[in-house]
Nucleic acid binder design. Sequence first.
DNA 1: AGGTTAATCGAACGAATGTTCGGCTGTCAA
DNA 2: TTGACAGCCGAACATTCGTTCGATTAACCT
Lengths: 194, 194
Amino acid sequence: MGNPNRDHEYLGKLQDYYTDYRSLPSYAVIGEMLGMASKSAVSALVKRLTLAGYLETTPDRRLAPTKRFFERDLADFNVPAGLPAAANDAMSEALTVDEYLIPRPSSSVLIKVRGDSMVEAGIHDGDIAVVEKRHSANLGEIVVAIVDGEYTLKELARDKQGYLLLPHNAGYEPIRPQEGLEIFGVMVGLIRKY
Amino acid sequence: MGNPNRDHEYLGKLQDYYTDYRSLPSYAVIGEMLGMASKSAVSALVKRLTLAGYLETTPDRRLAPTKRFFERDLADFNVPAGLPAAANDAMSEALTVDEYLIPRPSSSVLIKVRGDSMVEAGIHDGDIAVVEKRHSANLGEIVVAIVDGEYTLKELARDKQGYLLLPHNAGYEPIRPQEGLEIFGVMVGLIRKY
DNA sequence: AGGTTAATCGAACGAATGTTCGGCTGTCAA
DNA sequence: TTGACAGCCGAACATTCGTTCGATTAACCT
C-alpha cells in the first residue's frame, strides 16, 4: 500500500479541531491541516472515516461527526478494577450530560425548585427540574401546573371529582384546582449540586 | 419593526438541529427550517446571533456555535403570575448543564446508584451520581467508599469509636468499616431522568 | 521480478455557498 | 399622520465547495 494506515492520526486531528470549534472544516482546510495537497485525497479519507462510522452526512449533505467520533481510547480511562457499574450503560449513547437530559432544547426549560412539598419524591429545595413544555400530561407524571396564577410542581392525579395535584410530603394536602387546571410542562429530569 | 423579535425562537430551532446532527446547516437550509424565503434574511439573522454571542466564525470562515449556544435558561420557581408564554421573561440566569454539574471532568466520574439505602436523602435507585475522585472527605459529605472490597454510597460520619457510614433509610443500619476505610470519591451532583 | 492495491496528486467541472444591494411592509414613537 | 427602522424578499455575483478521473508512488504478496 501507499502508506501505513494513518487514518487514526488524521481522525485525532479532526477531533482536536472539532473540540476547538464545534464544527468541521472544509475539505481544503482538512487537507491543509493533515498535509494533503489534493482535495481528492481528503475526499477518499472522508469516505474511509464514514465507512468506519466516524463521520456521516446530514440529510442536507453536510459533513458531521457521529457518536463514535467522540469515543476516546480506552487507555485514557484507567479504571480501577471492580469499579461499580459506571454509568455508561445509563448514559447509553449520550456524549454529554446535557444531551442525556435535554433531547429537545427548544421545548425544555430549567426551573429551580422552591419548597419541600416534593421531598418524598426525592425532589429537594434548590434542585433544578428539567421541564418539557407541554399542555397535556399523563396521570402519575410530575408536572409544573399553573393554579390560580401560581406555578407549582406536583404529581398529576385524578379521582371521581376530577383532576388534582398531589404533593409528596405528608405535611401537605392535595390541591384541587378551582377553575380549570393549566399544565405548563412535564418534569423529565432532575439536577442537583452539592 | 417588521416583526416582534423571534430570534430566540430561531435560536431554539438551531439548537435542536445541532443537537441532532452536531453540525449547523447551510443558510439555505436554515431558511427552509425557519420559514424564510431568502438567504439574505438568514444572513442578517446570523449576524444578530453572532453579535449576541451565540454564533461565531471559525478561522476558516465556517459558522460554528459558541459556548453560549449551549446555555440553558434557568427560571426560578416562584415566578410572578402572568401568561404562561411570558414565563421566558422571568429567566434569572443561564447555565450550561455540563459545566454546572462537572466543573472538573478529568477527576469526575458518573456512577449509577443501585439500591434504596439513600432514598431519604433524595437519592433513588437508578439515579446517576456525579462523583469527584478524592481520597479524603469531610464529615457530613456523601461519599463513595470501598468497604471490604465493595463500593457503597453513604454519608461519612464519626463517633467515639471511629468513622462510620450512614445510610439514609430507616431500614438500614450504619456501617462500621472493619479494617480501614477507603474513600473513592465525594458525591458532588445528582442526575435523574424520568 | 511482476502484479496488486491503497493512498495521494493534479486538474477540471458543475453545483452550492454566503454576500450584497435595492425595494417592500408592518410596527413604533413623535 | 408622518418618519424612522427592523425584518424580510428577490436577484445578481464572485467565491468556494465537493466530486470525478487519470496518473503516480510505495508497500505488500506470491
